[in-house]
């Protein structure tokens, strides 16, 4: 089978191992290793192989914008680094902020986390309010370009 990984395509037919009921078996030596696979999120999968966990990403079928997104999020957008609840928003739209200044405080399970500004700038939009539940990676606040 052709696997389209984000790191490049690979044909599993060329690999001297086969899958047999919860194990992979080496076609030459007969050695078996226990293996499990699960979907993690988006295009990402987890592979548990003989006690180690690996993450593998499939190439996305849509147009490539991952690079653009990453650059943008580093500079301009504050995203939640965990799923949870917004406790406080420390700044308002239009406010000038410094790099590292506390913008948003959120909580998940037992943890409290302060999200700081990625750089100095002006707050363009605040997309959340205290009490709002957010997913991992949700955009919480944007700075002006």
């Amino acid at each position: 089978m052709k696997l389209n990984l984000s790191s490049g395509p690979i044909d599993t037919g060329d690999i001297p191992w086969e899958y047999i009921q919860g194990n992979v078996r080496n076609k030459n030596t007969g050695r078996q290793l226990p293996v499990r696979v699960a979907h993690l999120d988006g295009n990402r999968y987890q592979i548990w192989l003989s006690g180690q966990i690996y993450e593998v990403e499939l190439a996305s079928s849509g147009p490539k914008r991952a690079g653009a997104d990453a650059a943008q999020s580093n500079e301009r957008v504050v995203k939640s680094s965990m799923p949870g609840t917004i406790l406080a928003v420390k700044v308002k739209k239009g406010e000038e902020v410094e790099a590292g200044q506390a913008l948003i405080i959120m909580e998940s399970m037992k943890m409290e986390l302060t999200l700081g500004s990625p750089r100095a700038g002006k707050v363009a939009r605040v997309l959340v309010h205290p009490g709002k539940m957010v997913e991992l990676g949700a955009t919480l606040l944007e700075l002006e370009v």
Binding site: L3, L5, T12, I15, V24, V35, A38, I47, L49
Partner: peptide
């Protein structure tokens, strides 16, 4: 990931 793991992923 070792290549043997990718065989399992393909099966999955």
């Amino acid at each position: 990931v070792p290549k043997s793991g990718l065989v399992a992923l393909a099966h999955f």
